[in-house]
Amino acid sequence: MRKLLLSAALLGLAGAAPVQAADYVIDTRGAHAYIHFKVQHLGYSWLGGRFNDFGGEFSYDESNPSAASIVVNIDPASIDSNHAERDKHLRGDDFLNVKKYPEAKFVSTSFEQNGDDKATLTGDFTLHGVTKPLTIDVEHIGAGPDPWGGNRRGFHGITEFKLADHGIDYDLGPASQTVYLELSVEGVRR
């Protein structure tokens, strides 16, 4: 971050800053964003839930999409599968161990546009104290002015990871080792 600020400052000094990439704050206040997850239950159905508390920001410049970046911070304790007893278990040390690992986050490292609205976002995903690379298939949904004088842009992403890769080894059965994530973000331009 400091490096980024420093380079930004240098660019500013040199007066050679390119077209400023738009900085967007994810609209969690208005809840135009969500992080849903699903895991197979016994191989017979899906167990779904979401993280209620998260936040972040992203940059995206249509003239230079590959410079896009995003940071999302997730409060793992806000996991909500619509069942208090299960959520208690998920927050406990069999799973997320939120007392020991109170933070989860995704920090992008690259953004690769493939065609019009599709892109591949790569970054470092930290969960349960373990940071692993994660690739997210991204779709650009739209952008433009909102009815209240602001400017918004939204993306939708899907990805998956194995619980064991993040050191969560509670045995839910062979069909339930992969978590599928769906992320929808709408950013409000600063």
């Binding site: 619509n82 069942h83 208090a84 007893e85 959520d87 208690k88």
Partner: peptide
């Protein structure tokens, strides 16, 4: 209060 935390 644990078991009924979500209104169940």
């Amino acid at each position: 209060l644990i078991s009924t935390a979500d209104g169940r």
